[in-house]
C-alpha cells in the first residue's frame, strides 16, 4: 500500500478550512430569515464573512479544530494498522502547518502533546467494504459544542418523556434549551436512539456526516427530524444565543437496537461549523469532497 499521509493531510486541511457547501447554504438561508440590523443577523454575517475568508486563506474556520473523527472504509487487504499510522502522521503534519491547533491534552499530567496525537486520539473507526477503494470521512468535532452534548435515559419523569418518539422529541428539545447559545448555535443536532451509553454517542456523531439536504431514509425518523427542526427554531435562542429565528440548521437521527432494560437517547451537538470532508483513494488517485 502507498503511504497515504499526504492525502490525509489534505483531507484535514479541507475539513478545517472549507465549510461544506450545504452548511454554508443553510447559514445563508438563516441570515435571510433574521431581521436586518439585529444581533442575530450580525452574527450570521460575521460567520459567513469568516467562512469565506477561511476558505480564501486556507486557514481554520474555527480555532478549536476539535477532535478529529475518522470513519474509514477499506477493502479486505488493507492494513488498518498502516492506515492508522498514516492518519497519525497526517495529524502531526497538519498541526505543524497550522491547519489544526495542538488539541490533545494528557488527562493525567495536563500536558498537551503538541501534535494532535495521543491515547485514543485521533478517533478512528474502520469499516471493511467490498469496494477496492479506500474512503475516509473526517468530522472535526469542536469542544465547546461537545460540552453541551447530553445523554438521556427514558422514561424521564421530570420531562414526562416516555420510551417512544414523542419522548425522544422532548429530550432533544430539553438538550437544546439547556445548551442555549453555548454550543455555537445555529448547530446541527445528531441524535441516536437506543444502543448503550458508548455506542449511542458514537452513532450520534456519525449522523453528522450526512449532508443537510439529504433526507433520512427512515420515514418515521425523517418526520421527527422535520418536526424537531421546526420546534427547535421556535425556541428563538438564535445564533450564538443572541435571540433569533434560527437556533439549529438541522437534526439528524439514527437508531440502534438496545437492551430491554435500557432506552438511551444520545445527543451530539455540532456547532454551526459542521466541518466534514471526504476523500476517496482509488488506484492511487485521491478525490476530495
Amino acid at each position: 500500500m502507498n503511504d497515504l499521509t499526504e492525502q490525509f493531510v489534505e483531507l484535514i486541511r479541507k475539513a478545517a478550512t472549507e465549510l461544506p457547501p450545504d452548511v454554508e447554504q443553510a447559514l445563508v438561508a438563516a441570515k435571510e430569515r433574521e431581521l436586518p440590523g439585529s444581533a442575530a443577523a450580525g452574527a450570521l454575517e460575521t460567520i459567513l464573512r469568516n467562512v469565506g475568508l477561511a476558505r480564501q486563506l486556507s486557514s481554520p474556520v474555527c480555532q478549536d479544530t476539535g477532535t478529529p473523527i475518522f470513519e474509514i472504509y477499506h477493502p479486505q487487504h488493507v492494513s488498518t494498522r498502516e492506515v492508522t499510522a498514516a492518519v497519525r502522521r497526517a495529524c502531526a503534519l497538519a498541526t505543524q502547518r497550522a491547519f489544526l491547533r495542538p488539541n490533545a491534552v494528557d488527562s493525567v499530567t495536563g500536558i498537551n502533546s503538541g501534535d494532535n496525537t495521543g491515547v485514543d486520539f485521533p478517533t478512528l473507526h474502520f469499516h471493511e467494504w467490498d469496494d477496492d477503494a479506500i474512503k475516509a470521512q473526517l468530522l472535526l468535532k469542536g469542544g465547546g459544542s461537545e460540552n453541551v452534548g447530553a445523554q438521556y435515559k427514558l422514561p424521564d419523569a421530570q420531562l414526562k418523556a416516555g420510551r417512544d418518539l414523542e419522548g425522544v422529541r422532548k429530550v432533544v428539545l430539553d438538550a437544546v434549551l439547556r445548551a442555549q447559545g453555548e454550543g455555537c448555535s445555529p448547530g446541527v443536532i445528531g441524535v441516536c436512539i437506543g444502543g448503550d451509553r458508548g455506542s449511542g454517542y458514537i452513532k450520534a456523531k456519525q449522523t453528522l456526516l450526512r449532508r443537510l439536504d439529504e433526507p433520512n431514509p427512515d420515514a418515521a425518523l425523517d418526520a421527527l427530524e422535520r418536526r424537531l427542526l421546526s420546534d427547535l427554531n421556535s425556541l428563538d435562542i438564535g445564533p450564538m444565543g443572541f435571540g433569533g429565528r434560527t437556533t439549529v440548521l438541522g437534526v439528524r437521527i439514527a437508531a440502534q437496537h438496545r437492551l430491554p432494560a435500557c432506552y438511551f437517547v444520545s445527543i451530539a451537538y455540532m456547532c454551526w461549523a459542521n466541518r466534514r470532508a471526504t476523500v476517496v483513494i482509488r488506484d492511487g488517485q485521491a478525490t476530495y469532497a
Binding site: R49, N50, V61, G142, M240, C271
Partner: peptide, 13 residues
C-alpha cells in the same frame, strides 16, 4: 462582550 463563536479567521484578521 460576546464575540461570534467560531469566527476564528475573521477575528485573527
Amino acid at each position: 462582550l460576546s464575540a461570534v463563536g467560531g469566527a476564528a479567521t475573521l477575528i485573527a484578521d
